[in-house]
Design a protein around this nucleic acid. Structure first.
Lengths: 212, 212
DNA sequence: CTGGATCCCTCACGATACTG
DNA sequence: CAGTATCGTGAGGGATCCAG
């Protein structure tokens, strides 16, 4: 570890040594919503080889970014979670995600999107100033990826899995086009790019709340 | 290019495909102060192989992050500069640098620090609220690395090379210890970790303005 | 001299199989 | 489930070479 060094006395270079190796920041992305098991991580990061995941977790643990914890009995499960230091990267990942989203073209067939990826995307695109006075819970379903988002007057709270929602949106990766303003919510419904259950007005407002 | 894909439909993954490969963000760091020639880049990034630098520049040019430009005659020199899109990463690099600085230990003998690295470090550690009412120009000399910083009532402006400064500080990588509060400015002078010409009170105030 | 391109070697990554 | 073991490939590292 750290064998692959930049040999620069620079905070940025150091940061990249800690979390800049391949898959590193994506592992952190997966851990932002909360502690996860090894298996959960491999499911969120479909293409990561298990030995690489293992290596990254060990390196980041040593770097003080990630903590390995064994749950108390009877569970006994092993989970990984971000340390406080690691969690401070949240803001960086948010900004990087927003920046990179502008270069996201049309989805390819092999593209996947984990719950953690979708949550980061939602948070990175949320516009508090357009959510004034609104209080609503969205449930989003993209294939097997299910997440929810609570908007409360400029504040956003998100989580993996379903929720007791005011509106449930079932869509796919074409959801990006809606958020980019390339496809209107109404057209998305007509094209079958989205199906909505519940308060349909909230769906109309969706691309205003989360805009690329 | 992009053969090394994450196959994830996620802004963060896309960003990492564009600038997350080895040396990528460090090249951007070098370009933040302004356009640079290939040779300048190899000098700022001492350990980068020329073929890797060449590859990163080409990839980032294609990604719309970097622009290759040939200066008008008689210069005819080739320079690389950030596009507007690339410059938007400034804030990300700043935050990553600040985060990583906390994991910077003592400098190793082989460690270097380019002007661009030092400038990013200064900007990332600057505390505007501690610079109220102050107007001063610092010149910093760390070996061959010379930069300057103008503080003007909460605003900071930096640049490579010397300047007409109120105070000139000649130090080395031990400067980090001063900014971390591990070594007082007075002790640094006594230990020979720093030499100061000009307004010595500005040196006393330095670790307050730029703190880890 | 700058601005790279080329060559070769090594090692990290990727794929897969396997174990406690 | 939580990883480790093995092995092939290709990107990165280092040196050299070449064209303008």
């Amino acid at each position: 570890m750290a064998a692959r060094n930049y040999a620069e006395y620079c905070g940025l270079a150091r940061a990249l040594e800690l979390v800049g190796e391949r898959w590193g920041m994506l592992v952190i992305r997966e851990l932002i919503p909360g502690p996860k098991r090894f298996k959960d991580l491999t499911q969120g990061l479909r293409r990561i080889p298990s030995n690489v995941l293992s290596a990254r977790l060990k390196e980041m643990e040593q770097a003080g970014v990630v903590e390995r914890r064994v749950l108390p009995r009877p569970s006994g499960a092993v989970v990984y979670e971000l340390t406080d230091y690691g969690r401070e990267l949240d803001d960086v990942l948010l900004k990087l995600a927003r920046w990179g989203t502008r270069s996201l073209g049309e989805p390819r067939d092999e593209d996947t999107s984990s719950p953690a990826a979708l949550l980061l995307g939602l948070r990175s695109l949320f516009r508090p100033e357009h959510a004034r006075g609104l209080r609503a819970t969205y449930e989003l379903r993209l294939g097997e990826t299910v997440v929810h988002a609570r908007v409360d007057d400029g504040a956003l709270e998100v989580g993996e899995g379903p929720a007791d929602a005011d509106v449930t949106i079932e869509s796919d990766l074409r959801l990006r086009a809606v958020m980019a303003g390339e496809l209107s919510p109404a057209d998305a419904l007509r094209d079958g790019a989205a199906r909505v259950q519940g308060d349909e007005a909230l769906w109309e407002r969706f691309p205003e709340l989360f805009a690329i």
